[in-house]
Write a protein that binds this DNA or RNA. Structure first.
Length: 183
DNA sequence: TAAGTGATCTCT
DNA sequence: GAGATCACTTAA
């Protein structure tokens, strides 16, 4: 079953927990498909999250990545169910799924599958680039998520602070917004 | 542990 | 248009 709009238009933490154990599925241009189980995600939740690209408060001149709604971050402000993809460190595409209601900026970064660790390596293996930015995850064309009804013990979900967000200030950098499956 | 890499954003 | 920044990876 392809995850639908209802799945993504719920509180971000709920979606993140439920996304673990689901499958990321890619159909390549040549018709082949690739499916791997999602095992690690991070959430970026709302206009007050200072680690989020879409942060709208506490604008600090030294913190140039937190600038609210810009051309780059506009997808995060759309209704849940589309992809937000951007280039980081000049060479790695980051894959996010936008979550929640329209005008509430929130997204979940897909960091790893059972088979592929690391957000940059994952997008490279899945041939994901900006051509998929703002595209819907609900249609089952190109890239989407599937529930394959695999059992998952709730106690296997672990939480930790996010990676690479030291700039976000004490409160936000320490929030346990990374969710992953204990191996 | 450090360097590579280029789009994005701010300020001139 | 210049300069800084960055939700990472790799090789040593």
């Amino acid at each position: 079953m392809i995850l639908n709009k209802k799945f993504f238009q719920r509180p971000v933490k709920t979606v993140a927990e439920d996304l673990l154990g689901k499958y990321l599925v890619r159909r390549f241009a040549d018709g082949r498909t690739l499916a791997e189980m999602v095992t690690e995600v991070e959430i970026y939740d709302g206009p007050e999250d200072r680690a989020s690209h879409a942060c709208q408060i506490g604008t600090d001149k030294r913190r140039r990545n937190n600038k609210g709604k810009t051309k780059r971050t506009a997808p995060m402000f759309e209704a849940g169910g589309i992809f937000y993809i951007y280039l980081c460190y000049g060479m790695y595409q980051m894959l996010n799924i936008v979550v929640g209601e329209k005008d509430y900026p929130a997204a979940i970064l897909i960091r790893a599958t059972r088979e592929t660790k690391g957000p940059g390596r994952l997008t490279r293996k899945f041939a994901i680039d900006k051509s998929l930015n703002t595209k819907s995850a609900l249609r089952g064309t190109g890239l989407w998520f599937e529930d394959r009804k695999e059992e998952l013990a709730p106690q296997k979900i672990v939480r930790a602070p996010r990676t690479g967000v030291d700039y976000a200030g004490e409160i936000w950098k320490n929030k346990k917004y990374k969710f992953f499956l204990k191996t």
